[in-house]
């Protein structure tokens, strides 16, 4: 790991200033992706600004219509939250299935979203539930947030503060995990809400994306049977040593049907 200057600001405002002042600064939240990246010398930031202990960014608030989660809330905290489990059980389940218990004790929702790893879990929930990402500068709709491989709508110096999730009527999540890393080979989050049906896929493309053919098929019949005949094209999907694009396309259908069964269970 190349050396850097470590900072632990006492407030979000100070973090913003430090980030803007740094030549090539990066935010450190849970560090479960950033530190492995640095250890492999895949990045060489001049400064790390540690926001992982800012109390103002770590909270869960639920009011019956939405659940708001602070950016540095740990995966384990979301998984164990009585409020999240009651309002959006599929979201608590997703958080409880990220990585392993030790990673969940450090990793944060804001870090996961800002990183936009193609195989991360949270982007599927954010996209399918139609969440809003609140930053130091604006509110970004989930549909406008994920731009590509490790690429988001965030601008330099912009910091995620929280994510608000509308409470759906029904939701379900299922992933086919890579056995060593527990990252998603394919994960599918399905959601039925007053505003309609949304289906989001992670692990299969450069970043999380919506599966519109399934959304259409599910609009009038929110069940696994309704998408039996939906064909998923492997064009543009990820392919690697673990899984071909064709197999990922197949898994999108299987995971979507299992997620629907769970949502209706």
């Amino acid at each position: 790991m190349y050396n850097f200057a470590y900072h632990r600001p006492g407030s979000l405002a100070e973090a913003e200033r430090k980030l803007k002042a740094a030549a090539d600064g990066r935010l450190l939240a849970g560090g479960q992706t950033l530190l492995p990246t640095l250890k492999q010398r895949l990045a060489k930031p001049s400064d790390l600004i540690d926001i992982g202990r800012l109390a103002e960014l770590s909270f869960i608030k639920a009011d019956g219509r939405s659940v708001q989660i602070g950016a540095t809330t740990r995966h384990a905290t979301v998984a164990a939250s009585a409020e999240v489990r009651k309002a959006i059980p599929a979201l608590a389940k997703l958080a409880g299935g990220i990585g392993d218990p030790q990673v969940r004790n450090m990793g944060t929702i804001g870090g996961s979203l800002a990183n936009s790893d193609p195989a991360a879990d949270y982007p599927a929930a954010v996209l399918a539930l139609g969440a809003t990402i609140h930053t130091t500068e604006r509110a970004i709709a989930a549909d406008d947030f994920f731009k590509g491989l490790f690429e988001t709508a965030l601008k330099p110096g912009e910091i995620i503060k929280s994510v608000s999730f509308p409470v759906p009527e029904k939701a379900g999540y299922m992933k086919f995990a890579q056995p060593a890393s527990r990252f998603c080979m394919v994960g599918v989050f399905v959601c039925k809400a007053g505003s309609g049906v949304r289906v989001a896929v992670t692990g299969a493309g450069p970043c999380a994306f919506r599966q519109s053919a399934m959304e259409k098929a599910l609009a009038s019949n929110f069940s696994a049977a309704a998408i039996e005949s939906v064909k998923v094209s492997p064009a543009g999907l990820n392919a690697d040593i673990h899984c071909s694009a064709e197999y990922r396309a197949h898994l999108v259908g299987v995971m979507a049907r299992r997620a629907l069964t769970e949502a209706n269970g």
Binding site: L28, L35, G52, Q102, S181
Partner: peptide, 29 residues
């Protein structure tokens, strides 16, 4: 493994198990 996967480095920090190879000493001030 030194890549956050094997768990040989697990320690308890403030009551939570974490992987000590994926945490800066400065973070545990």
């Amino acid at each position: 493994c030194d890549t956050s996967q094997c768990g040989a480095c697990v320690v308890d920090v403030n009551g939570h198990a974490v992987k000590a190879c994926t945490l800066l000493a400065a973070q545990t001030e």
